[in-house]
Design a binder for these strands. Structure first.
Length: 278
DNA sequence: TTGGTACACTCCACGGGTAG
DNA sequence: CTACCCGTGGAGTGTACCAA
């Protein structure tokens, strides 16, 4: 381990389940020949990007050869193992993250546990963003904000590349328009029908392409969006009553809001406001 | 690619009730 | 008074399938 230079940071995040995106950890490592990690399971997403050398990445019964300027994704719950090449051991940077939007961003990158390899034409930019995340982890002040900023930039470039590749780009425009409509109208009593009307598609067809694109139904997306907004409101103003928040996110009936909140979060709004009570 | 239908399923508004 | 639970029935939704 004497020649091994390694840096790692684990951030203490208390409200990790309520944020859109959170950096869990980041680091850089120059591995020795045949240096390995795993088999191991993560509770968050982990992107490794190889800046030099090569190695192998194993998931389920699949083996992937990873070269310089390529990366690989580890999804939460996946059992993975990876090993540096014997002759040209890899040097990589990694960032671990999670959050409510993480799954959506990964999907938009076209990645999953069957397709975990990151191939990019913008490898210089990608490694630059990763290096910046790592550098910011040493900052004393506002480091989590800086790291998150670079993580967003990193994901944006990978998403952009994946979406440009998509042949059926027209679908993305419908989804984008629908999400924009939801963001503008979540506080009103909108329905899937009204969203489909706004986009200009048949409700059934709209639901179908929405689910194909985001792996969730329009209704699930709308509910999730409203509950996240409710959590933000509770955090911003601890004096707000549950009824005030429920009306603010489009639920005229506070009881229904509490029921939906508990279903999504696993605990009631009052337990969210005051965890000690629960 | 888009729209329509059918049907099973889920959601939600409502009323009634309990607990603190 | 506030917060929550439960049962019920109508409305809304997802999905498979077919047609244009």
């Amino acid at each position: 381990m004497d020649n091994l230079l390694m840096e790692e940071l684990f951030l203490e995040i208390t409200n990790k389940y309520d944020s859109n995106l959170i950096v869990y950890q980041c680091g850089w490592e120059k591995c020795k020949p045949k240096h390995s990690y795993g088999p191991a399971v993560r509770d968050h997403y982990l992107i490794h990007f190889v800046t030099k050398g090569a190695g192998k990445f194993y998931i389920d019964n699949l083996t992937f050869d990873i070269k310089e300027n390529q990366g690989f994704l580890i999804c939460p719950g996946d059992i993975t193992y990876y090993e540096a090449d014997e002759k040209e051991p890899w040097e990589y940077i990694w960032v671990g993250f999670n959050g409510l939007k993480a799954n959506e961003y990964i999907r938009r990158m076209g990645l999953d546990n069957h397709n975990p390899i990151i191939k990019t034409k913008n490898s210089i930019i990608v490694s630059d963003y990763l290096n910046n995340i790592f550098k910011c982890s040493k900052f004393q002040h506002a480091r989590e904000v800086r790291m998150l900023g670079y993580l967003y930039l990193l994901l944006s470039i990978l998403i952009e590349e994946a979406e440009i590749k998509e042949v059926s780009n027209y679908k993305y425009e419908y989804i984008e328009k629908a999400i924009e409509y939801i963001e503008m109208n979540y506080s009103r009593s909108i329905s899937v029908q009204s969203i489909a009307d706004h986009v200009g598609l048949n409700r059934c067809y709209f639901s179908s392409i929405f689910k194909n694109s985001l792996n969730m139904s329009p209704e699930s997306f709308l509910i999730g969006y409203r509950i996240n907004k409710a959590c933000e409101l509770f955090k911003q103003n601890k004096n707000l009553r549950i009824g005030d928040v429920s009306r603010s996110v489009g639920y005229s009936d506070q009881l229904v809001f509490s029921k939906v909140f508990k279903k999504v979060k696993g605990y009631s709004p009052s337990e969210y406001i005051n965890p000690l009570k629960g």
